[in-house]
């Protein structure tokens, strides 16, 4: 019943045997044990599971695993450099105090990174739109928006 899929995961060619009923999130968290991508609701309502597929931020909890075939997936584990140094957007979240409990943060970073990769200097409106599907209960979003802005201005 399992099928083979080939895709790029954090810049590495990946071949996996998957159950076609799985979501991408299931593959990431339960099979590959890449737990940086979080499950906050399982229904695409909170954005904690956001990953970037071919440049677009998507909710991996709704994304059928078979759709990944031939695509390029980036998760939070693929954002920092191999030497452990943080990507500018991650560093901005740290420096601006945008992180509290942190559960929403991987999703926030993936959503904002997808925007920043497409657009050097997004407007505040575009920044807010990029994370409007990402819920956070701790921060009131203020410092998260500040963090994204600080990178958007600095690029």
């Amino acid at each position: 019943m399992k099928k083979e899929i080939t895709f790029t995961l954090n810049k590495e060619k990946t071949i996996m045997e998957v159950d076609p009923q799985w979501t991408l999130l299931h593959l990431l968290r339960e099979v590959l044990e890449m737990t940086g991508t979080k499950e906050g609701c399982g229904y695409g309502e909170c954005g904690a599971c956001t990953v970037i597929i071919d440049g677009e931020a998507v909710n991996s909890c709704l994304y059928p695993v078979m759709e990944v075939e031939g695509r390029s997936v980036m998760t939070i584990e693929g954002v920092a450099l191999k030497d452990g140094s943080l990507d500018p957007i991650q560093q901005a979240f740290v420096d601006e105090g945008a992180v509290q409990c942190g559960f929403c943060i991987p999703g926030m970073i993936m959503s904002s990174k997808a925007l920043l990769d497409k657009k050097d200097k997004p407007t505040e409106e575009e920044i807010k739109e990029s994370i409007e599907g990402n819920l956070c209960r701790c921060t009131g979003y203020v410092k998260i928006v500040d963090a994204i802005k600080s990178v958007a201005g600095g690029r």
């Binding site: 420096d95 992180v99 943060i105």
Partner: peptide
Amino acid sequence: PKKDAPLKTTGAAVY
């Protein structure tokens, strides 16, 4: 900055 922020921004924090 929060000491645990790098852990949380890289997905390494274990919940």
